[in-house]
Design a protein around this nucleic acid. Structure first.
Length: 299
DNA sequence: ACCCAGGCGATTG
DNA sequence: CAATCGCATGGG
């Protein structure tokens, strides 16, 4: 099936670190598990070709919902393209879209992402899926759904934590955060469902996430809000974007996160999350080195 | 042998 | 309140 879509760059959108379960194959096809379905996608020129199994009643809507085709990118570019830095960053990743993910999977993924590196995050999540998720077969290959809260609750903390020679989940100290979160969700111990947070204002949802879960702080909360709960004003502040904002707008001064986020909300406005994605995507160009490198003593 | 990673919670001053 | 520490594991 095909969609002649709006402005869109599949590779930029899949490779920018917002999602961790896509794998590229021969012929430029990408494969992933989206919720409980295997999805296969490739982009040729302006056309997005895809296949979804098992069969769906509204596959095109599924795809355009997942890739947020309703976001008017040109209009968003107008709003976040406030200066030459952003205009450059946008031009380098034109067509990158925020992807609308499942809140549960997104939350666990970004808990795993803390104080971690993208290749290792990817490997950890894949291993968790293989160990605890449901297996389905597509084109003769095994694919594993992201584990449900119930499935994750069966995990032993040591199994999640340990790496044993690259065969374990290797979550390290984050294992207890993941397990604790799974327990809370599975036992329905919260006053709200994750999806309910979509209906709340950004600030309320932000506080609820941080206050309800063990291991979710400002950064992870903002990732979940941006990538899964439709809060495009969320601006996840990680080591990279912190350094980028300080460098571009504060002359490398060591100002506090609270001030940075205040500035970003003000400066970029309702689509600050998109600004964050384009800046993060261009982090190497902007910083030209690791953020923390040799900075510990210098400050 | 270091030092760091898409941070967070606990502990100090 | 603000600033600093420890954390598990893997990679450079």
């Amino acid at each position: 099936m095909k969609i002649k879509g709006p402005l869109f760059d599949l590779n930029q959108s899949l490779c920018c670190g917002q999602t961790f379960r896509w794998q590229s194959s021969e012929d430029h096809w990408w494969y992933s598990v989206v919720n409980d379905r295997i999805v296969k996608v490739r982009q040729i020129e302006e056309e997005l070709e895809f296949e979804i199994q098992p069969g769906l009643s509204a596959p095109k809507e599924f795809i355009s919902n997942y890739f947020r085709f309703d976001d008017d990118l040109e209009s968003i570019y107008q709003k976040i393209g406030k200066d030459d830095f952003l205009i450059k960053a946008i031009s380098q990743a034109r067509g990158l879209r925020v992807i609308r993910q499942d809140p549960w999977e997104c939350m666990i993924s970004f808990i795993v992402s803390q104080q971690n590196q993208i290749p290792k995050i990817t490997r950890s999540i894949e291993t968790m899926a293989q160990k605890f998720g449901t297996c389905t077969i597509f084109e003769g290959k095994n694919y594993y759904l992201f584990p449900t809260p119930e499935q994750l609750c069966t995990a032993k903390i040591k199994t999640l934590q340990s790496g044993f020679n690259l065969h374990g989940c290797a979550l390290g100290y984050r294992a207890r955060y993941v397990l604790g979160t799974a327990y809370l969700i599975y036992n329905n111990a919260l006053e709200f469902r994750l999806d309910d947070l979509k209906k709340l204002p950004y600030n309320t949802a932000y506080r609820l996430l941080i206050d309800s879960f063990f291991g979710i702080g400002p950064k992870v909360a903002d990732c979940v809000l941006l990538f899964a709960l439709d809060k495009l004003e969320a601006f996840p502040l990680d080591t990279w974007t912190r350094r980028i904002i300080r460098k571009l707008y504060f002359n490398d001064e060591r100002i506090k996160d609270e001030k940075i986020k205040e500035f970003c909300a003000d400066y970029f406005g309702e689509f600050a999350g998109y600004a964050q994605e384009y800046l993060f995507c261009n982090r190497i160009n902007i910083c030209q080195s690791n953020p923390g490198k040799n900075m510990t003593k210098a400050l």
